[in-house]
Design a protein around this nucleic acid. Structure first.
Lengths: 339, 339
DNA sequence: CTGCAACACTTAACCGATCAAGTCATCCGT
DNA sequence: ACGGATGACTTGATCGGTTAAGTGTTGCAG
C-alpha cells in the first residue's frame, strides 16, 4: 500500500506541491476556497505528512525524548515514572508530538543518548529527571542547545527551564501533622541521597524538626527500592529509642516499611505511624492504607510537557514551582501509644 | 552549534558524499584504507547520521512503536509494562533503535495512531499487546503491512508474528500445588475478560480443576486494578463456602486481595492461601510475601524485540511460545486450616 | 488610464542521507 | 599489446516535505 504524499494531493487538486503545503499548514498564500478543497482531499485519502521529510526540511521532528536512569527492577514497580509519562502524553498527544523513550544505565550513557539524539535530529527536546548537584548532563544540554525541562530541582541549570514541587512545604506539613498527633521521635527514610530533591527534603526535614524542638530527627538514606526501604526500617526499629513515626520518600519503601513493622510484631499505627511520599494506588491497597503526601503526578508531567513544547517553540519559559503535595490521612497514622 | 553531516566528513577526507556513505555503512565500493580514514574522521567530529534524512531516503526510521491502552492509574502501578519496556530496550538500544511510546484510551485511537505512524513513516514496526478476540487492530496492521509482534495471544493474527507464554501450563502448576497442599475450594480473580490470554487462563483453570475433581472452581472477572481485585475478593470471601485459596491474574490484585482478607480478620495463609500471577518486587514487599507465578518479563520483552527487528529486516519470523512461568512459593500459601 | 500593491498561486532550491549509474585507472589473462 | 574485468571512486537522482523568490492576475488609488 502506497503512502499518500503532498504530490498526490497536488495532482488531485490541480495545484502545486507548494500550495498544498501552505494550505495544510495554515500559512497565507492560498485562498480559503482552495485551502478547504485541499484539506478535504487530504482528509479523504488519509494523508499524514512524512515526519522524516518534515524534519529534514528544517522543521521540527515533532518528537521529544525521555531517558530513564534506574535499574529495571525499580522502574517496573516505581509508580512515579509511569504517572509522569501519562502526564506528558496528555499534552504531547494533543499536539501530535511523539515521546521517545530510552532506558539507560548511567548518567554518562544518558549524555551519549542526548548527543546521539541531537546529532540524529531525532528529538526536538528532552525531559531531564533526577537532577543532581553539579549535574554533568546540564552543561552538555546547554552546549548542544537542546531544549529541555529539568524535573526534580531546583538547582543550577543554566538556561534550561525547570519544574519542581514544593518538597519543603510538604514535609513541613507531614511533620507538623505527626507532632500534632503527639509524635516526638520522627524518622525519615530518604531517597537516593545525591538527588537534589532528596537533599531539599532532607534539609527541610532537619530544619523543621529542629525548629519544632525535635532533636533526634534522623534521615536514613536509601535508594527507593523496597528491599533497602525495608532494611532501613529494620535498622530504625531495633533501636531502644525507636521512632514512633517514619516518613518515607516513596510509596514502595513505605509499603516495605509497613511489612517490616508487622513482621517485627509492631502494630501500625499503634506502635508506628507511617507516611508515604507520593500517593499511588499502592498506598490504599495495603492494610492499613497508608497516609500519604499526595500530588497529582500526571498534572506535574503535563505541566512539564507544556514547558518543553514552549521552549521548543522558542518562547521564553520560566522556572515553575508546582504546588505543594498535601497530606491525605489514612489508617497508618495515629497518636502514639503511651509508653 | 552545527551538526556535522556526511558532507563535512567528505570535505575533510577529500572524497565525495557517496564514498562516505559507503564507508560508514560497511558497503563495498571504498578501499579499506579510505574507510578507516573516513570512520576516524566521523568519530573525531562526533558524527551521527541524521535520522530524518536516512528515513527519507528509503532506509528505515530506526524506531519502533508501543501503544499503551490502559488508564493512567493502572499504568502507574502495573509493573508488567515497565518490565516489558525494559526488555524491549535491551535489544533496541544495542541496535540503536528508538522506542516511541503513546498512551491511548481505546483500541480505536490505537488504530488511528498506527495509521498515523505508518503515514508519517515514524516507526518501522510496532509491539501489540493485549490481544482480543477478533481484534480490530489486526486487519489494519495487515492492511498497512506494518511489521508487528503481537504479545498476549495466541490468537489469529494473519501474517503478524506472535509471542505468548504458556499460561495454561502455569495455571496448571499453581492449581496442582494448591491441591497438593490440601485445598479443595480454589477460586481465581481474572484479568480483563476480553483479553485473549485471560480467556486462555480461564479455560485452562476450569479444565484443570474439572480434571482434578474440583467442581466449584470459579473465576471472578476483574480489570487488574487493586480496587476491583479487592472487591472481587470480598465477594468471594463472604460466601458461606468460601474458597481456601485464590489465584490472582496480576500482583496488584493479589496485594489488594491480601489486604481485604486481613481486613476481614482472615489470616493468610491460615484461612486463605494467595497466589499472584507475575512476580514483581511488590510480592516480596508485603507481609506475608506472596507466592507467585514467576516469569522473566524483561526476557519476554527482549524476545519480542528480537522478533520485531527480524520482521522489520524482512526475515521470516515464527510464532513463539516463551517458557512457562514457574511457581515461587512464599509465605502466602499453606495447607488449609482444618474446618 | 497608469502604476503598484495585494493576492494566489508556481517554481525551484534545499534539508542530508542512500544508491544506481557512470567514469577512470589498474590489473590480468592470452 | 590488447580487451575485458575489477576496484575505487564520483555524479546525480531521489525520498517528501518547506520556503524564498518569481509570475501572472486583479483591484484600486491617483
Amino acid at each position: 500500500m502506497k503512502r499518500p504524499t503532498i504530490a498526490d494531493i497536488a495532482r488531485r487538486a490541480g495545484v502545486s506541491k507548494g500550495a498544498v503545503s501552505y494550505a495544510l499548514n495554515g500559512q497565507p498564500g492560498v485562498s480559503e476556497a482552495t485551502r478547504r478543497r485541499i484539506v478535504a482531499i487530504a482528509q479523504e485519502i488519509g494523508f499524514n505528512p512524512n515526519s522524516a521529510a518534515r524534519a529534514l526540511s528544517g522543521a521540527s521532528a515533532r518528537a521529544v525524548g525521555l531517558t530513564l536512569c534506574r535499574p529495571a527492577r525499580i522502574l517496573s514497580i516505581e509508580p512515579f515514572f509511569m504517572g509522569l509519562i501519562s502526564g506528558f502524553e496528555q499534552e504531547l498527544a494533543a499536539r501530535s508530538f511523539a515521546l521517545t523513550l530510552q532506558v539507560v544505565a548511567t548518567p554518562q550513557t544518558e549524555i551519549e543518548v542526548y548527543r546521539r539524539w541531537w546529532g540524529e535530529r531525532r528529538v526536538d527536546g528532552v525531559f531531564v529527571t533526577d537532577l543532581r548537584e553539579n549535574d554533568v548532563r546540564i552543561p552538555v544540554l546547554n552546549e548542544l542547545q537542546l531544549p529541555a525541562v529539568v524535573i526534580g530541582g531546583p538547582g543550577d541549570t543554566g538556561k534550561l527551564a525547570q519544574l519542581w514541587s514544593d518538597d519543603a512545604g510538604a514535609i513541613t506539613e507531614a511533620v507538623r501533622y505527626l507532632m500534632a498527633l503527639g509524635h516526638r521521635r520522627i524518622a525519615r527514610v530518604g531517597g537516593l541521597p545525591d538527588l537534589l530533591h532528596t537533599q531539599t527534603r532532607t534539609r527541610a526535614f532537619t530544619e523543621v524538626c529542629a525548629s519544632l524542638g525535635l532533636s533526634e530527627a534522623v534521615t536514613v538514606p536509601s535508594d527507593y527500592t523496597g528491599e533497602e526501604g525495608g532494611r532501613a526500617t529494620r535498622r530504625l526499629l531495633i533501636n531502644a529509642e525507636r521512632p514512633t513515626a517514619i516518613i518515607y520518600d516513596n510509596d514502595v519503601m513505605a509499603v516495605a516499611g509497613l511489612s517490616v513493622a508487622q513482621e517485627m510484631g509492631l502494630s501500625v499505627p499503634g506502635d508506628l505511624s507511617i507516611v508515604a511520599w507520593d500517593d499511588s494506588p499502592l498506598c490504599s491497597l495495603v492494610h492499613p492504607p497508608l497516609t500519604a503526601l499526595t500530588r497529582d503526578i500526571a498534572a506535574y508531567g503535563a505541566h512539564a510537557a507544556r514547558q518543553l513544547l514552549a521552549a521548543i517553540a522558542g518562547e521564553p519559559v520560566e522556572d515553575v514551582e508546582e504546588g505543594t503535595a498535601h497530606l491525605t490521612p489514612r489508617g497508618s497514622t495515629a497518636p502514639p501509644r503511651e509508653p
